[in-house]
């Protein structure tokens, strides 16, 4: 008779890393389908290329560093997919390849792989390519050549260059339904919300960061809007445009680069939201979401210190 001996606990919730990533990917599918529906083959091209590059670069880097290859946990696919989601449709193939490779390599692997990255790898890859080749991130040009049934100008760029008058003809409901120019998937606001609510409901992410991020964006935008509504856009417009929705649900909630304590998460989310609006209004970039998340990522170790002290009780058993 052979018995198995192991240490407690002997049960497990049967949730593993691959399952979490699988569901995060599933949650992105509505937005992916929408973007393929809107932009056609070019969208599919960017997405497929990004995912393939992410997986191949992880295999290569891990082989080179003589570490176990862990692509079956799905994290590389998720990184590739998210990277594609925030890029414009017109991104040339080499930019997708370099950006995704940098996401995996600089964003994650040189820090030690999954779970060790201090910043969101997707945004690291994005930021490096954004600084290097700003011309390819002109979202106004990205929609050229498409027969779109909505205003083909990038709302945030219009807001930056022309002020509030220019964005008057964007109906908020159109923005919500994804009838706006933006990143491949990040424009599809309602579809991202559907995916986000799904992963929230299934418990793969927690409510703290999405909620406080939303509150941060709305509160900060409201402050500006209430002081001078002829100069600053309305808060809901800020919430629905650019990368805010994808940031709220998918980028700011990256496990490794966000705090794990409740109050740390809330401060993190608020910081992301506030910085987003500040960067949108005062920086030279039309959208500030990704830089805001990147900046807040750097505060994560500090925010992790916000923690209730464990209660150490001495009790006696009779």
């Amino acid at each position: 008779m052979k018995l198995i001996v192991s240490s407690p606990p002997h049960w497990h919730a049967k949730i593993d890393v691959a399952k979490i990533h699988l569901h995060l990917i599933i949650a992105l599918i509505p937005a992916v389908l929408f973007s393929v529906y809107t932009y056609g083959i070019h969208s599919a091209r960017v997405i497929a290329l990004a995912v393939a590059t992410a997986v191949i670069s992880e295999i290569l880097i891990r082989r080179l560093l003589k570490k176990p290859v862990t692509i079956d946990d799905g994290s590389a696919i998720l990184i590739g997919l998210l990277f594609a989601m925030i890029m414009p449709t017109s991104t040339p193939y080499w930019l997708v390849v370099i950006g995704t490779f940098l996401s995996i390599f600089i964003g994650r692997e040189i820090f030690g792989g999954l779970g060790c990255n201090p910043m969101n790898p997707v945004i690291v890859g994005w930021a490096i390519t954004r600084i290097s080749w700003p011309n390819y991130f002109n979202l106004d040009l990205a929609s050229v050549g498409y027969n779109l049934d909505f205003n083909y100008r990038y709302p945030l760029a219009l807001l930056k260059s022309g002020g509030v008058d220019q964005i008057a003809d964007f109906a908020l409901i159109d923005l919500l339904l994804g009838k706006q120019v933006g990143g491949l998937g990040s424009a599809a606001a309602i579809f991202l919300v559907i995916g986000g609510v799904y992963i929230l409901y299934r418990g793969f992410i927690t409510w703290e960061i999405p909620l406080s991020f939303t509150v941060g964006v709305l509160a900060m935008a409201s402050i500006f809007w209430l002081t001078d509504s002829s100069q600053y856009a309305n808060p809901v417009f800020h919430l629905l445009t650019g990368n805010v929705i994808i940031g709220i649900f998918f980028l700011a909630t990256d496990f490794s680069s966000s705090p794990f304590n409740r109050w740390g998460m809330i401060v993190f989310g608020l910081g992301c939201g506030i910085l987003t609006i500040i960067l949108r209004i005062w920086s030279i970039y039309p959208d500030g979401v990704l830089f805001a998340i990147l900046i807040m990522n750097l505060f994560t170790p500090l925010l992790d210190k916000i923690h209730k002290k464990p209660l150490h009780l001495e009790i006696k058993e009779l």
Binding site: S6, W11, D16, I20, T70, G113, F260, L311, H312
Partner: peptide, 27 residues
């Protein structure tokens, strides 16, 4: 019977959330 994988910590914070005595288990 459950076998431990002992993969790298992905810092998801689940352990901190469920810990009844508020320990920062991941750290």
């Amino acid at each position: 019977v459950y076998n431990y994988q002992n993969l790298q910590c992905i810092n998801c914070g689940k352990c901190v959330k469920v810990c009844p005595v508020n320990l920062e288990v991941n750290l």
